[in-house]
């Protein structure tokens, strides 16, 4: 198939977006064993904040394309900040009071939060913009056609795709450094393994959990902005399907395992696109999920998941 390399490339791009979101699921699951259903919506909020910034900049006469790096930075920072604050608030008010309740109750609370966020964004945007389906200003308009020897047709690469991948890689590296090298990251891993013992070492578990939500949500918010610039239109409902996919990516990578979630996200993105090339776009999700289920049958704890230990 001639377009296979192109499909692979596009799959990588969407895969990096999934990976950034999947990290949020996996980090929260790591410390709380909770599927944070609202995470997809935090991603969506990030997309809206970033888009609003780009729209506002255009309104002030600064078209994003004039200084794309500045525009992207100005969109990313508030989006990450708002998403982080929202994530921490969700943890504080929707999960922490229920932490000792049965898992199902927290799960219901999470689903409730997800609806609340979606409808609030819709409400706010309807009041503010008079609509809630927002077109996203273009930031990096260039498209490159790269001829690769041996390939029948040149590869099409959007400048924006490169930025998405680059930003995602940078964030993943920073996150990995934070988790592996810093005191906070150490405490996070300790809490993930055994919160009671961590508390006995003087680790304030609540703070670490809040920090986990903060970091995961900030990355989700950034993913939202990157997604918005890449896929051009956003609605308050984009978080659901993408959230499910990112969550699946996290599970396939081995939930609780951060490198695993990167791997799972990228794998899902590539499978989806390349699979879609063979079986048709209609079945691309079916195909991708079938492969992922197969992975889980042979490796139930996920690709990089190894910890199958009881928590006391």
């Amino acid at each position: 198939m001639d377009i296979l390399p192109q499909l692979f490339l596009d799959g990588l791009v969407v895969g990096f977006v999934y990976a950034l979101i999947a990290v949020g699921y996996t980090m929260v699951y790591g410390v709380l064993e909770l599927i944070n259903f609202a995470h997809g919506d935090i991603f969506m909020v990030g997309a809206f904040v970033g888009t609003e910034v780009l729209v506002a900049l255009a309104g002030w006469g600064l078209r994003a394309t004039a200084d794309p790096w500045l525009a992207l930075s100005l969109a990313l920072l508030p989006a990450m900040a708002v998403a982080a604050a929202l994530g921490v608030a969700v943890e504080r008010f929707a999960y922490r009071p229920l932490r000792r309740s049965p898992r199902l109750i927290i799960l219901i609370s999470a689903i409730g939060v997800s609806f609340i966020i979606e409808d609030l964004v819709r409400l706010v945007e309807t009041i503010h913009q008079g609509k809630f389906v927002l077109p996203v200003p273009t930031v990096f308009p260039d498209v490159y056609h790269v001829s690769v020897p041996g390939l029948p047709s040149p590869l099409t690469i959007k400048a924006n795709s490169l930025v998405v991948v680059g930003a995602a890689v940078i964030m993943m590296v920073v996150l990995t450094l934070i988790v592996s090298r810093t005191r906070a990251g150490r405490a996070m891993r300790a809490v993930a393994e055994d919160p009671v013992t961590a508390a006995l070492q003087g680790v304030d578990v609540d703070r670490i959990i809040a920090l986990t939500f903060l970091i995961g949500s900030a990355m989700g918010g950034a993913a939202g902005v990157l997604f918005a610039t890449q896929y051009t239109t956003i609605t308050p409902y984009i978080g659901f399907l993408i959230g499910i996919k990112a969550f699946t990516a996290a599970v396939v990578g081995g939930i609780g395992n951060i490198p695993g979630s990167f791997l799972g996200g990228i794998l899902l993105g590539v499978l989806e696109q390349v699979g879609g090339g063979f079986v048709g776009a209609k079945f691309q999700n079916v195909f991708a999920f079938c492969v992922l289920v197969a992975v889980l049958i042979f490796k139930p704890s996920g690709l990089l998941g190894q910890r199958v230990q009881e928590k006391v």
Binding site: D10, V14, G276, N285
Partner: peptide, 20 residues
């Protein structure tokens, strides 16, 4: 002849086929 579910936001697969 392709189908993309109405909740999907990523058309890159189909677009690649169109480009082709």
């Amino acid at each position: 002849r392709e189908s993309v579910a109405k909740d999907e936001t990523d058309f890159s697969n189909v677009l690649n086929k169109i480009a082709d």
